[in-house]
C-alpha cells in the first residue's frame, strides 16, 4: 500500500513552534544555580531593582538566551538553505566544513591580528568569519556539484578535508598563541554562548536580519531547484542568481553565528529534518520553521549545558554533538534501507 501524506494545518504547527519557543525561553530564564520564579523573571525583564535575581536575569541569562536563539536560528536556517541548494538532506554547515571555514577566519584574527594591529577593530573578527565561511562554501560547492546533482560522498569528503585542514591550521596557530589566546581558541572549538554580551548580539542581529530578508525571495526557487537545476530554469527562475544569494546567505549567517559562539554542530541537520518530517519539504514553511526550531533547540541545549553539571558547565557544542551525533547516525541508517 502507498503511504498517505498528511500535512497538519500550518497555523497549528507554527503556533505550536512559537509555544515551544516560549516554554524554552521561560525555562532558560528561570532555571539555574539561582532558581528564579516566573513572576520574578517577568518583573526583572521590565525593570532592574538591583537585586541579585534581577541582575542574574538581565545580565547573565537574558543575553545568553537571546544569543543562543540567534545562533540556533542562524545555523538551522543555513542548514535548510544548504540542503535545498545541494538537494541533499545531509548538508549541515558543520559537517561540510562551512563552520570550520568561519572558525579558521575567526581564530586567525584572534591569534594574528594583534601582531599587526593595535587595537584590533571589533568588526574584523566577524568579517573574517564570514569570509572563511564563504570560501569554504564555494570550495565545497565547486567540488561536490555536477551540472544536475550533488554527489553526497564528494560533499561529505570535501567537508572532512576542510575540517581536517582547519584543525591542522588551528593547531599551528595554537603554537603561536599566548595563554589568553589559547583559552579563547579552546572556547572556539567547543562552542559556547557563555560569554554572551550585548555587543555580540548587536553584531549578530543585523547579519541575521539581512538573511531573513532573503527567505521570501529564496523559498520558491529553492523548491523548484529540488526538481533539478534545468527544471528550475525552465520554470523561469534565474538559477545562477539564486545560487549566489543562497551561498551568500549561508556564509553570512554561519559567519555571524560562529564568530560569537564558536563551533556548534548538528543544529543545521536536526532542525530542518524534524520540520520536514512534520510539515513537509516546502521551503516557504521549511525555512522559517527551521529557524524557529533551531532557536528552541539551542536555547534548550544551553539550558542543559549550564545546569546538568552545575556549578560547572558543559560547552554547548558538546551538548549538541551528544544529541546530534546519534541523530546523524540514525539518518544514515535510514538511508541504508
Amino acid at each position: 500500500m502507498e503511504r498517505e501524506v498528511s500535512r497538519p494545518p500550518v497555523v497549528l504547527m507554527l503556533s505550536g513552534l512559537l509555544l515551544l519557543l516560549l516554554v524554552a525561553t521561560v525555562m532558560a530564564l528561570r532555571v539555574g544555580p539561582v532558581a528564579i520564579g516566573s513572576v520574578d523573571v517577568w518583573q526583572a525583564l521590565w525593570r532592574s531593582d538591583g537585586s541579585l535575581q534581577s541582575m542574574v536575569v538581565r545580565e547573565l541569562r537574558l543575553p545568553r538566551m537571546i544569543l543562543a536563539a540567534l545562533v540556533g536560528s542562524a545555523l538551522a536556517l543555513s542548514g535548510a538553505i544548504l540542503q535545498g541548494l545541494f538537494r541533499n538532506p545531509l548538508a549541515d554547515p558543520g559537517l561540510i566544513g562551512v563552520s570550520s571555514g568561519a572558525a579558521l577566519g575567526a581564530v586567525s584574527v584572534i591569534v594574528m591580528a594583534s601582531w599587526w594591529l593595535n587595537p584590533v577593530p571589533v568588526w574584523l573578527l566577524p568579517m573574517m568569519a564570514f569570509v572563511g565561511a564563504l570560501l569554504a562554501t564555494l570550495v565545497v560547492w565547486r567540488i561536490a556539484t555536477r551540472q544536475s546533482a550533488t554527489d553526497v560522498s564528494l560533499l561529505l569528503l570535501a567537508g572532512i578535508a576542510i575540517n581536517a585542514l582547519v584543525m591542522a591550521l588551528t593547531g599551528l596557530l595554537v603554537f603561536a598563541a599566548d595563554d589568553a589566546q589559547l583559552r579563547e581558541l579552546t572556547f572556539w572549538n567547543l562552542g559556547s554562548v557563555a560569554q554572551a554580551t550585548a555587543e555580540q548580539i548587536a553584531v549578530t542581529l543585523p547579519c541575521l536580519i539581512l538573511v531573513w530578508l532573503t527567505i521570501p525571495w529564496l523559498a520558491r526557487p529553492l523548491n523548484a531547484l529540488l526538481l533539478g537545476e534545468a527544471v528550475a530554469g525552465h520554470l523561469g527562475f534565474s538559477v545562477e542568481r539564486v545560487k549566489r544569494v543562497a551561498i551568500f546567505s549561508v556564509a553570512l549567517s554561519v559567519g555571524a553565528a560562529v564568530s560569537v559562539s564558536g563551533l556548534i554542530g548538528f543544529v543545521g541537520l536536526v532542525a530542518p529534518h524534524l520540520v520536514r518530517l512534520t510539515l513537509g519539504a516546502d521551503h516557504r514553511l521549511l525555512l522559517p520553521a527551521s529557524a524557529l526550531l533551531g532557536a528552541v533547540l539551542l536555547i534548550t541545549a544551553d539550558t542543559i549545558a549550564r545546569t546538568i553539571v552545575a556549578p560547572a558547565e558543559l560547552p554547548i557544542g558538546l551538548v549538541m554533538a551528544l544529541m546530534g551525533g546519534p541523530f546523524f547516525l540514525f539518518l544514515l541508517m535510514q538511508r541504508r534501507r
Partner: peptide
Amino acid sequence: PQHTPVAFPFAAAEVVAL
C-alpha cells in the same frame, strides 16, 4: 525532461503544484 528525480519527501500533488 527525460528524468526528474525529486530529492525530498514531496507528495504527488505538491510536485504538480510546483
